[in-house]
Design a protein around this nucleic acid. Structure first.
Length: 699
DNA sequence: ATAGGGTTAG
């Protein structure tokens, strides 16, 4: 304590134009307290008498005394000005008095310190200053009592002193103590005001006692206080924080009706509340309210909104909000950029994501490992291998963040998806060298990598590593292994089936049915149903896709149809076929090539049946393959479909203004269906080589 | 620095 006081005082000594230690010159909301121009004189005269005194306060102030009496005006002003401009330190000695009071153990100690510091001459504003800074709710009431005795304040001044003491209880999370002080306040005949109540309400909130907060909010009128902007904000904020949306909104509506001006933070918290519950329109409507009501937004509010739009998967909306934000002169911070990156990465808006990344670099903002990882994961998802390498190098040279297991995992996945064995292996080595053990993610990627490169023995080797490490493969891993099978020459199937059977008998049995074309009487369907039902929801579709691809490759189209039917029945596939008055459609998005072709043939067969049954066709028939090529597949679904339709002589043409669509008119459809009669079209599938797309391993 | 009160990612 002594040294603190000393250092504070000596820094005052260095200040050529010391501000009055008590900022009584400020125009404060304390008109009732008498002002005193120079607290300094007071401190020095009160704290000095014996230079040899062991008392730390006295001693240090005596040290200070010698210096403080140097008239700063006699020193060279310019020289001192220089010093002071480099020093941000200009503390009020009352801060140190406060600290001493906070660490007092007894009433006596409190009295001693206060008497030493002030004697009988206490200023109201100094009392407020000290209580406002205190954190110890055990000594604060003693200090308060001392001030009440010495100052003899008016009732209006008393309520201020009580309020500021209540704050100490809020700071130390002592709601019981706050209630006790409130009672004392009443006993003394001091009338609480709105500030008293907002302090009580916030104290209750911080003590996790929302019911108490409500109680105090509701009893305001009993004391002649009516709720206002701040008390209402505090309540809305509290309800929103504890996710009581009903009450938060009820009160929010009331605030609007009463024209109470809620603050930005409360709006922010309402947006957050809506975002957490998935009501994203709610987020936007609160934002609209804020604008309409003319409440000034801040960066945190925009960030909350952007993060909600990320969860909402609404990249366009996020873009608009970001533009409004910068348009209003707010500078994006790290959290803003992180939110934007997430939004764009999730939407796979790679240009936008890279632009955010570049802007961050330009502004010298520090990327975190997590942000780098998010970017790298996106590079994997959209197939930006070169960009990924660049980002990875930048990350390593940043000096601030190190690649972690996730980083390496993404990198290995990126190489694996394009079958770059040596690069993937090099990344794996670097990962191990950096002290990370390859996890299931990495090993799954390697299986994919070796599978793509048709290095079946390495697939088997990697599989064994999984088991040796005691890792239990997940559904993603099995799906990957199935995917590898669709790319593996038949003569090597045995090796893979051995692997599968070793650790997953259900899947092993299903695969054997397919490969060995075993006869069955419904057993296959039953086993596949069980298998698909047991699989993680997000893997069901790619898993089913792989099984169908395998059937197509093995040239067992009936099994493929069985699997497609099953997938439809289990609602793994939905809305593949749809009919409206104007158009019948086949939606092949998110299907693998094999599954897409199987679905196509099923559709054509359904069309034939409908046509033969004399059903009227719609004006237009369309197939939607979706826009882009698949990320790691050489052949996009659209291009394969195009050539396949040609083989079938099906008169579809690519949609001119509808990319990703193949369309056929009613007239063309009729003549085509007529000409092909009842010929089975499935045979045509044999010639198709499936460059089966890989699936995303990361989420 | 002198009475009310809080926020925004994994």
């Amino acid at each position: 304590m002594a040294s603190r006081l000393f250092s504070s005082y000596s820094s005052i000594f260095h200040d050529p134009t010391p501000t009055p230690l008590s900022s009584s010159s400020r125009n404060l909301k304390l008109p009732n307290f008498p002002s005193r121009p120079h607290f300094r004189t007071c401190v020095s005269s009160q704290l000095t008498p014996d230079p040899n005194s062991p008392d730390p306060v006295t001693k240090s102030s005596s040290l200070s005394k010698n210096k403080i009496w140097v008239n700063p005006k006699k020193l060279k002003a310019k020289q001192l000005l220089k010093k002071s401009s480099t020093s941000r330190f200009n503390p009020n000695p009352l801060v140190n008095v406060t600290k001493s009071l906070d660490s007092c153990q007894s009433d006596q100690e409190v009295s001693l310190i206060l008497n030493n510091a002030f004697g009988d001459n206490v200023l109201g504003r100094d009392a407020v200053f000290i209580l406002n800074k205190m954190v110890n709710s055990n000594t604060a009431p003693i200090v308060l009592k001392h001030f009440l005795d010495k100052i003899n304040p008016s009732k209006g001044e008393e309520v201020i002193l009580y309020n500021v003491t209540l704050k100490v209880f809020r700071k130390s999370g002592d709601f019981r103590g706050a209630e006790k002080l409130f009672d004392e306040m009443l006993l003394r005949g001091v009338k609480p005001d709105n500030i008293t109540f907002s302090t009580m309400i916030n104290c209750a909130r911080m003590c996790s006692a929302p019911d108490k907060a409500v109680e105090w909010f509701e009893k305001m009128p009993r004391y002649g206080c009516e709720p206002d902007d701040v008390t209402c904000s505090a309540m809305v904020y509290m309800y929103a924080r504890v996710n009581n949306a009903d009450m938060a909104l009820k009160l929010y509506e009331r605030a609007k009706a009463e024209k109470w001006r809620l603050d930005t933070v409360t709006f922010s918290t309402l947006i957050r509340m809506y975002g957490m519950s998935g009501n994203y329109d709610g987020c936007l409507s609160v934002y609209e309210d804020l604008k309409v009501l003319g409440v000034k937004p801040n960066v945190a509010m925009y960030n909350t909104l952007l993060n909600a739009m990320f969860r909402a998967k609404r990249p366009q909306q996020a873009k608009i909000i970001y533009e409004e934000m910068t348009g209003n002169g707010f500078l994006p911070d790290l959290i803003t950029y992180a939110a934007l990156l997430r939004v764009y990465v999730a939407a796979q808006f790679k240009e936008e994501a890279f632009r955010v990344y570049k802007e961050m670099k330009e502004k010298g903002m520090e990327m975190s490992t997590v942000l780098y990882n998010i970017l790298l994961a996106m590079c994997g998802d959209v197939g930006c291998t070169d960009e990924a390498i660049e980002i990875f190098e930048d990350m390593k040279s940043s000096g601030t963040c190190k690649p972690d297991d996730w980083t390496f995992s993404s990198l290995i996945t990126i190489y694996s998806c394009s079958g770059k064995v040596s690069e993937a292996e090099a990344a794996l080595n670097e990962m191990v060298k950096s002290g990370f053990e390859p996890n299931l993610f990495v090993l799954t990627s390697l299986v994919q990598c070796y599978g793509k490169a048709k290095q079946t023995d390495n697939v088997v080797k990697t599989f064994k590593q999984v088991l040796d490490k005691g890792i239990i493969p997940d559904d993603r891993f099995w799906c990957c292994l199935l995917n590898v099978m669709t790319q593996t020459p038949n003569k090597e199937f045995g090796k893979l089936i051995d692997c599968i059977e070793k650790a997953n008998s259900k899947l092993g049995s299903v695969v054997r049915y397919l490969v060995e074309e075993k006869e069955d009487d419904g057993v296959f369907r039953k086993e596949v149903s069980e298998l698909l039902n047991s699989i993680d929801a997000e893997v069901k579709k790619p898993f089913c896709n792989c099984l169908i691809d395998l059937c197509v490759n093995l040239n067992v189209p009936d099994r493929a149809r069985d699997l497609l039917d099953l997938g439809l029945k289990l609602e793994i596939y939905t809305d593949i076929q749809s009919k409206s008055q104007a158009q019948w459609s086949l939606n092949l998005k998110k299907l693998s090539l094999g599954a897409a072709l199987t679905a196509l043939h099923a559709w054509i067969s359904d069309l034939s049946k409908a046509f033969q049954a004399g059903e009227d066709l719609p004006p237009l028939l369309g197939i939607n393959t979706g826009q882009g090529k698949h990320r790691y597949s050489d052949k996009g679904l659209a291009s394969v479909l195009k050539s396949h339709l040609k083989e079938l002589n099906a008169p579809f043409h690519e949609g001119a203004d509808k990319s990703g669509w193949f369309l056929m008119t009613k007239v063309a459809a009729k003549s085509w269906l007529e000409s092909r009669g009842s010929t089975e079209s499935i045979a045509a599938m044999r010639s198709v080589d499936l460059g089966v797309p890989t699936m995303a391993l990361h989420h």
